[in-house]
Design a protein around this nucleic acid. Structure first.
Length: 547
RNA sequence: GCUCCCGUAGCUCAAGCUGGAUAGAGCAACAGCCUCCUAUGAUUUCUCGAGAGAAAGCUGUUGGUUGCAGGUUCGAAUCCUGCCGGGAGCGCCA
């Protein structure tokens, strides 16, 4: 690693420890690596400018280092032009499997409604995190929690019971179920008694009332069927799915046991826990039925028993931060040591220009509708350009549409809220998924025609070639950073910059028509293609050989 | 009321955790550019010529008192304090 070598040199000259040395990436024309002297200078009582000059004098150019210059208190290192090429053309060492197991939970759908754009963000983040962690050597399992019980489920059931006329789905089944959920809210506004009826239905469900269970099974299977269809279109698979309906009873048991042990309290028939700063949290309703958190307690335990994971990452929106803090605290109170392995990866909400999405009122951007719209738009773009057979057209259009969507939802810092802008989601130009695919396709097209012959020459290197080589060189560091911080957006932005630098190179440097430079440039395009492919993989975007 | 998050170009966002040289992209607007792309036809490799379509591409221009006011520092978009504005959460939704 070049950074390591430079740090070593600086350590030698300054007497600092390698760990104390922090290198910066300088601006253009200021070299390739920079060592800021400000802190070190003040500890010696010297002026940074003078110290930088002193240090620069002491360091002699060698193997990879072309020259060393002092400027504005920085020691700037200029790396020899061919070094980055040699670095990226090297065969990489094999990765060491760490054999640590990480569980990623996403997206946790509810079986009372179809997926919306918020779920898509969740799903893309979860999937990308899983890919990134796998890439750096972890074992990763993708798990999902199906929220298939609870008061919200009973609401859609009640509406169907009252106004569904026992009809079978006349549209995608999860949309059909979702319709009744929205209908319930509408009717409940006029008639608040419906809320009580839904509660009664939940009690009957927990008492395993045959009629209720039968209805529940029917509607749940519809919802699941629809949700699975959407997963399939997205190419998303889980290693294991957990169902709330199978964990809530054990959750109750743990809560009641905690009550006996005096960890939890009971007042007015309600079981709750006092979490101090986090406030009080209710664990069982006064009618004895369970809540979201009741089953989450057991679910965490069950997962640990199933997998003995080193880490469990819950990909859940920021609105549930309080919930997870409470959950982790409760698990700690119960004495589970593995609670330290649980992480709530909180991501920002997707808002509409008019405010928050509200499933209950049907104010949402539906995932299926959105996918369809982007897909149609991609088909249109393809038709404008080429004549393709229907199957090929659809396959390619779907790959492009999903690229646009994935990138749109992954490019923003995960903790920040997104303002959903349909025009931007449908954009295939500029800072977009298809832009990445396009640059990849171009590289493939060059390589289809290119043949390398003889040795590589490092004469006449164009500056865009160096920019590209340097960018490719950064990849390893970027992935490590993304894995450490659990931030797919780092990859997304890097990937975009990589494509950008390649497109610059592509415009300034002919490859096939080049002479002495040709072999080197082909090798460079190969290195780009490989890196871009890895990047796209980490984002879950299809790398298309042809656009 | 309390807790957490956010405020950067007309719009959407980078850089903020780890303070550092000129705060970067995309969209929109304006002005340019061209190929190794695509389809068709040859060519067994290297590729070629004709005509056609054409950028999911590139370059440039325009655009900023980084919400406001203080503080720390040689140096602040970044750290600290206060204020203003927006969002989310806070004992029987998930």
């Amino acid at each position: 690693m070049l950074e390591e070598k430079i740090k070593k040199i600086i350590a030698k000259v300054t007497g600092l420890k390698k760990e104390e040395i922090f290198l910066e990436k300088p601006k253009e024309n200021y070299g390739d690596f920079a060592f800021p002297c400000f802190k070190f200078a003040s500890s010696l009582g010297k002026k940074p400018e003078e110290l930088a000059k002193e240090l620069a004098k002491k360091i002699k150019p060698e193997k990879e280092i072309e020259k060393v210059e002092a400027l504005n208190g920085y020691v700037n290192f200029f790396i020899k032009k061919d070094t980055f090429f040699k670095e990226i053309f090297k065969k990489k060492e094999k990765k060491i499997k760490k054999r640590k197991l990480i569980l990623v939970e996403s997206p946790g759908p509810n079986t009372n409604k179809p997926l919306h754009v918020g779920h898509l963000r969740n799903l893309f983040i979860g999937d990308s995190i899983a890919r990134i962690l796998e890439f750096v050597g972890y074992d990763v399992k993708r798990v999902d929690t199906i929220n298939d019980r609870g008061i919200h489920i009973c609401k859609s059931m009640l509406a169907y019971k009252k106004w569904g006329k026992n009809k079978k789905p006349d549209k995608k089944p999860d949309h059909f179920v979702g319709y009744f959920y929205v209908l319930f809210s509408k009717k409940a506004k006029e008639n608040p008694k419906l809320e009580e009826e839904a509660q009664e239905l939940l009690r009957r469900w927990e008492n395993k009332d045959e009629e209720v269970i039968k209805l529940w099974k029917k509607m749940n299977s519809w919802a699941m069927k629809g949700i699975k269809q959407t997963y399939k279109v997205l190419g998303f698979k889980h290693d294991k799915q957990y169902f709330e309906s199978e964990t809530y009873e054990k959750g109750k048991e743990i809560v009641l046991e905690g009550l006996k042990r005096g960890i939890f309290k009971k007042e007015d028939k309600v079981v709750f826990v006092d979490l101090g700063e986090l406030g009080k949290k209710i664990l069982l309703r006064s009618d004895g039925t369970s809540l979201y958190i009741t089953q989450d307690i057991y679910l965490a335990k069950k997962r640990y028993e199933d997998y003995k994971f080193d880490k469990l990452i819950y990909v859940v929106a920021s609105e549930q931060e309080h919930h997870f803090k409470s959950l982790f605290k409760i698990l700690e109170l119960l004495g589970y040591k593995w609670v330290k392995r649980l992480v709530h990866l909180s991501y920002g909400m997707v808002h509409l220009p008019g405010g928050k999405m509200k499933s209950r009122e049907g104010i949402v951007v539906d995932a299926d509708d959105l996918i369809k719209e982007v897909f149609e738009s991609a088909k249109e773009e393809l038709r404008k350009r080429y004549t393709l057979k229907k199957k090929q057209l659809e396959k390619r259009a779907l790959a492009i549409a999903l690229a646009a969507l994935r990138f749109f939802l992954l490019k923003t810092d995960i903790k920040k809220d997104i303002l959903f802008d349909k025009k931007a989601a449908l954009d295939f130009e500029g800072f977009s998924g298809p832009y990445l695919q396009y640059s990849y396709a171009r590289a493939c097209s060059i390589l289809r025609k290119a043949r390398k012959k003889g040795r590589l020459s490092f004469e006449n290197i164009h500056e865009t070639e160096i920019f590209l080589a340097k960018k490719i060189y950064e990849f390893n560091e970027i992935v490590k950073k993304a894995a450490l911080q659990l931030k797919p957006d780092i990859i997304a932005i890097y990937c975009y910059e990589l494509a950008q630098v390649f497109n610059n190179f592509y415009h300034s440097c002919p490859v096939l028509r080049a002479e002495k430079e040709k072999n080197r440039r082909i090798a460079l395009v190969e290195a780009f293609k490989k890196t871009m492919k890895d990047c796209l993989h980490l984002l879950g975007i299809a790398a298309l050989e042809r656009m």
